[in-house]
Every structure is written in C-alpha cells, then in structure tokens.
Amino acid sequence: MDTTHTLEENDGRPSRRRFLRAIPVAAAGLGTSGLGSASDTSDLDRKGEFLPGITKWGDHVRLGNGRARSFTTGTRSGGPTHHGLYIERAVLDGLPSAGDLEAAGESRYSDKYGPTGRALPIHHRWSQEFFLPLPASTATPFTFLGVNWNPAGHPPVWSAPHLDIHFHMLPAATVDAITGPTAPSYELPAEYLPGGFVRSPVVDERVITDMGEHLVDPTVPEMNGGTFTNTLIWGASDPDGDGTAELTFVEPMLTREYLRAHSGTESRPIAQPTTYARAGTYPTRYSVRDVPGADAIAITIDSFESFEGDA
C-alpha cells in the first residue's frame, strides 16, 4: 500500500562533517535523484496522510493495544526523505510489564521477526523486541528497525519506561548475531565519533545484544541529574571483523510519558562524525511528529545528505 504525504523539512546544516550536495542515489521503487538543500514545506495534514512524496509501508506488528509499522518515504523524483516508525497512540496503553515479559517469555513473545516480537533480557532488563524491515531503503544504508519496548528502562540513567528505535545500517542477520553485554574487541577511530559523543566508560558493557556498541552525548539532561524524556544514541560495531569499528545504527530513545504528551512536531539535529567509514546518504535530523487525524505518532530520521567516506 502506498500513501503520499508531506513532512516538514529544514535547511539547517550540522557542522563537523564532510558532505557532497549532489551525489546521485538509486532507490528501489523510488528512482534516482541528486540530493540538494531541503526547503520548508507544510507539516502533516489533518487526515494523517503524508504529502507530497511516496511512502512504502512495512507490515503491521502488535504493540500494546495498537499497531506499529516501519515506512520509507521518497520524493517523486526519487530522493530519500524519511525512514520511520509509525505507531498508533493505542500502542502506548496495554504494554506488557517486565514481569509479564519474563513470565510469558517465548510462549507468547517468541519471534523478533514476527507480529508480537520476542521477550528477552537486554541491558539487564526485560524487553519486547522487534526487527522490522525498512521498505525501499536502497537509497540509504539503512536496512531495518530494531524496536524495543523497555518497561523497566535500563541502566545507567534511562530507567523510565521507554521505546528504543534503532535505525540499523547492517543486515538483520549480522545484528542478530551480536551478543552482550561485553567489551568491544576493536578500535573506533576518533574521526568516526559523532561530534560531542563519547564511548561509554563501562568498557565491559559497551556492546549490547542485538544492537552493538552504544555511544552517548554526555551533555544530555539525564546524564547530568535531569529527567530523561527524548534522547539520541549513536551505535557502532565491526561488521568486517577487521579490528576497526564504524557507525552502524542511530537510535532515538523516547519515554512513554513523553510520547503520551507529545503534540505538534519536534525535530533535533543528529550529530555527525568528521567522516564516515563509507560514503553514503545519512540523516542529519530526527523528528517526532503527531499525526492527529490518525491518532498516531511518526518517529523519523530525515534531512538526508550525501557524505564522503573513507571507502
């Protein structure tokens, strides 16, 4: 099913990175386009549809009392504009507790690739996890979403019930094979660290099951005695096994309380590295959008730019 839509754009440019404005990119089902400056357009319409552009939808999964699905949007001329997770607001009610997940285990939540996900301990706390393919995503390196409902949060400071939305750049089978928590067995070059981000000081727990190493911004409120509501994590791993890591996922983390109260559109920049390991088209912003006509919320990575890389 295809649905057209409008999503707000922004012509601000994050600093501290090398980018090319006009590298053509091919997208399966989306055509070919060079990337240029974005311009402001109208936000989501009253019906909850997105205009203009072409949206390709993933299959629904069941989360709480509602449904969630992945989507990819491109311009009519073929440029990538958004990858995202679309959730009905009913998702935020009826979510399983950590005790529910532990008790039900694989009798109810047995398949991360299936419609009800898998229950497993991640970050030392029980989580409901989904692997959701991203449709028509070859214009960018993004391959699938790893979505986790964390009813008891997780250490060190993200203890509020929240959703983790991992936008992965590796094949699902590669991420599925990552186990943890453990210490990384590779180096992460400084030029691949996004501006302002650092590696966790807890070395033996940097690499997390089904995810990879987590990189954090130490200036966010929750890292300084404030309240966790909406934050961004960058992730890294060594997919080639050559001893050198690269950025492999970007992860908005949003509390259930924040999502329940959210209205309008909130967009934040995504910090960029000096250079990426691989040339490609990467997001420079993430956004949380209320879709009032559909009683839904869309969480997206967007404002894509084509970047130079070391390979």
Rank of each mutant, 00 (worst) to 15 (best):
G180P: 04
A160F: 08
L193D: 02
P194K: 08
V175M: 05
Y186V: 07
E213G: 15
F167M: 07
H123R: 13
V207S: 09
P135M: 09
I165Q: 01
G180W: 11
L193Q: 10
S110F: 10
A136G: 11
S137G: 15
S110E: 09
L134H: 02
V207L: 08
V216H: 12
R199H: 09
Y186M: 09
L120W: 06
W126S: 08
A173T: 13
L215F: 02
P155C: 03
L215G: 02
R118Q: 15
A190T: 14
S127H: 14
R125Y: 08
D164Q: 06
P161L: 09
H166F: 08
A172C: 07
D204P: 05
N148S: 15
I165M: 02
H124A: 13
P141Y: 03
T143S: 14
P171H: 01
G146A: 10
Y113P: 00
V147H: 00
S159Q: 13
S159G: 12
L120F: 08
Q128E: 10
V157N: 15
A136E: 06
G196V: 05
M169Y: 08
S137F: 05
L163N: 02
P151C: 06
I178N: 05
P181I: 06
I165D: 00
Y192K: 03
H168F: 15
L170C: 04
F130E: 06
M211K: 13
P151G: 03
A139L: 01
D111Y: 03
H124E: 15
L145S: 04
Q128R: 14
R125Q: 13
S159H: 15
A160T: 10
S127T: 13
M169A: 15
H154W: 11
E213P: 10
L163Y: 07
L215V: 06
D111I: 03
P184A: 07
G153H: 09
P184K: 11
R206A: 14
A152N: 14
D176R: 09
E191Y: 04
R206G: 09
M169E: 05
T209P: 03
L163Q: 05
E187P: 00
E191S: 12
R118E: 15
H154Q: 04
A152V: 04
R125E: 14
I122A: 05
E191N: 09
A183Q: 09
R118C: 11
P194Q: 10
A172I: 01
F142R: 03
R199Y: 04
V202T: 12
L134R: 02
T179P: 01
G117Y: 08
E187A: 15
V216S: 11
I178A: 07
F130T: 07
G117V: 03
K112V: 10
D217I: 11
H166W: 03
T143G: 06
P194N: 09
N148C: 12
F197T: 05
V216P: 00
L120S: 12
T179D: 13
P151M: 10
T140Q: 00
V216Q: 09
F144A: 09
P161I: 05
S137R: 04
A172V: 11
W126E: 08
P171V: 03
P201K: 13
P155I: 04
H124L: 13
N148L: 14
G212W: 01
A183I: 04
N150Y: 00
Y186L: 06
G195D: 14
G180V: 05
